[in-house]
Write a protein that binds this DNA or RNA. Sequence first.
DNA 1: CTGCATGCAAAAACTTTGCACCGCC
DNA 2: GGCGGTGCAAAGTTTTTGCATGCAG
Lengths: 127, 127
Amino acid sequence: MLKYSRQREAIKTFLAGRYDHPTAETVYLGIKEEFPNISLGTVYRNLSLLSDIGEIQKLSTGIGPDRFDGNPAPHYHFICKHCGSVLDLSVDGLDHINVLANQGFDGEIEGHITYFYGKCADCKKNS
Amino acid sequence: MLKYSRQREAIKTFLAGRYDHPTAETVYLGIKEEFPNISLGTVYRNLSLLSDIGEIQKLSTGIGPDRFDGNPAPHYHFICKHCGSVLDLSVDGLDHINVLANQGFDGEIEGHITYFYGKCADCKKNS
DNA sequence: CTGCATGCAAAAACTTTGCACCGCC
DNA sequence: GGCGGTGCAAAGTTTTTGCATGCAG
């Protein structure tokens, strides 16, 4: 049974209002302005819980700590190898790739996570 | 300038002979049989170096520590959500998705990493 | 010899957890 | 009131790094 908590709501609201895929640390510092007493442990617990129940997404980019996305809907992410920023990306016509991947595979594919990488617009401009 | 080292060769050979995508710790323990004095730091340094120069791949699955794949060629991976195993997966016809993703994106997409997830054949059988 | 690579160990970075107290239901 | 959530801090896990020494070029 999931009990209401102001802290968890604040975390969801915080994430819903940002599109830069903050880390747990960034969420912590942000929430702290409203709840000066919140602890990093609580932030981690709630981020973990929310991503487990599918209300947010956890992004393990392989560069630095995990990041979190307040948008639970399936979409894609772009990681800039130069500045490390993580951007949302909407790519149409990729729904079929689970089916494609299941060809010749004995298990059951439920979904996929894709990270595109390269150079973001800003880094492209300044190079 | 990259200098030859027996340790690095051993790590490459070790990875080339396995298909279970071991963690740094597993590589360390494996190499230790041949080089009892190798240190975990050296393993991390070389895994990081080798993945930087593209001779191996680093897999950040988001579950537990990073894993490493001795096959540098582009291919896909499947992560079993039940037992945590990581399997190679060959999926044809996904070369175009970088192009697809670049539509309406101002940056430059150089590649992508995709993790499929679900239930592996063994876990599917036993459930 | 010169400088990158190693071994060792300490430390950093990131995340989880035990416990007593607090507050939702 | 009962039980899950929180704050705090300690500990766990994973990875990086400083430094003296070793070995390839």
